[in-house]
């Protein structure tokens, strides 16, 4: 696939697999072959949302990505204030075309894992379904603990399709899952992957640390934090005000306003786009500034960093 950050995807199939779960298959709108995606990858869909001027961008894990079925997602209907999944459940129809990012993977399987332990909570099962398929193909030993509502047990069991001899455990609620026992029983060389509510993933990480697991063997789902809260940028010399949207970098907002800040890597590594700051609190996300420079709050890398708060004044 050539550099093409945005995909146009057509809904090829959509079906309810439970009252709150909808499975959606997406293919390239032009019929072309989709970019490959490793187990654990996600895409970001642009979804129309009532009451929002701009489409919402929601990240969804790919349950599978293959030539025959395209990209498959399973979406849980959640809090109606986040309109994205509401749209998928109520309005999305076969034939609809959606804009999506190319797949991105921040939750990839470790190629050298001797055993993979997977712990899922609720809809956190989605990347684990992709992992199971990959691990079966690879012949890597795995163990799965999936926690869910009792109402979802049968649906999840069907999605997993446990084969004879596989260590698959479904738990109706947290009470029958003991992280200390499960983590404590693993052989050396095991990598643990957790996906689900933050409290579950925090608990797994804390238990693994308490048992002396190396941090490199403990993984949790991550969609990345490219954007953040919107804020207002003020140009110190002119007083001009520029809005930095939630899904936009400060550098992009400056460029959109016709201010050429000068940049090279656009990834927080090279230091070329550094700008002086007059006022405002910073959230540094770069790999360039020294600890002292960060502390001073006098300089920022606008390609990745943001304001911690609703305004920032640049000394330019």
């Amino acid at each position: 696939m050539r550099d093409q950050p945005v995909l146009s995807l057509r809904v090829a199939a959509a079906e309810a697999i439970a009252p709150t779960l909808r499975r959606v298959s997406l293919r390239a709108a032009d019929g072309a072959r989709l970019p490959p995606a490793a187990a654990g990858a996600h895409i970001t869909l642009s979804l129309p949302a009532s009451g929002h001027a701009r489409p919402l961008k929601n990240a969804y894990t790919l349950v599978s990505a293959d030539l025959e079925h395209g990209y498959t997602l399973i979406v849980r209907r959640t809090d109606p204030t986040r309109g994205g999944s509401q749209h998928i459940h109520e309005a999305l129809a076969v034939g609809d075309v959606l804009e999506a990012s190319v797949p991105h993977n921040l939750f990839a399987l470790h190629s050298q894992a001797k055993k993979v332990l997977m712990i899922g909570g609720g809809i956190g099962i989605t990347p684990l379904l992709a992992f199971i398929a990959a691990l079966r193909a690879r012949g890597t030993r795995f163990e799965l603990h999936q926690i869910c509502n009792s109402a979802d047990l049968r649906v999840f069991a069907a999605l997993i399709g446990a084969q004879p001899g596989e260590a698959v455990h479904l738990h109706a609620g947290r009470s029958t899952f003991d992280a200390a026992v499960v983590l404590g029983a693993q052989p050396l060389g095991t990598h643990v992957y957790s996906c689900g509510p933050a409290a579950l993933m925090d608990a797994i990480a804390a238990q693994a640390a308490a048992l002396g697991w190396p941090a490199s063997h403990v993984h949790r789902e991550d969609f990345g934090a490219a954007g953040g809260e919107p804020f207002t940028l003020t140009i110190g010399t002119s007083g001009a005000r520029i809005t930095v949207a939630a899904d936009q970098t400060m550098l992009e907002a400056l460029e959109a306003a016709g201010i050429d800040a000068g940049s090279l890597c656009r990834g927080g590594a090279c230091g070329v786009c550094a700008l002086p700051v007059r006022a405002g609190e910073l959230e540094h996300r770069d790999h360039y500034l020294s600890a002292d420079e960060r502390q001073s709050g006098a300089v920022v890398m606008p390609c990745v960093s943001r304001a911690r708060g609703d305004s920032l004044v640049l000394d330019i």
Partner: peptide, 17 residues
């Protein structure tokens, strides 16, 4: 090399460098 590694590990599919 520390910075280059950080950058390379964040290179995204579809966004070549």
């Amino acid at each position: 090399f520390d910075r280059a590694l950080s950058y390379l590990m964040r290179v995204r599919y579809g966004h070549p460098a």
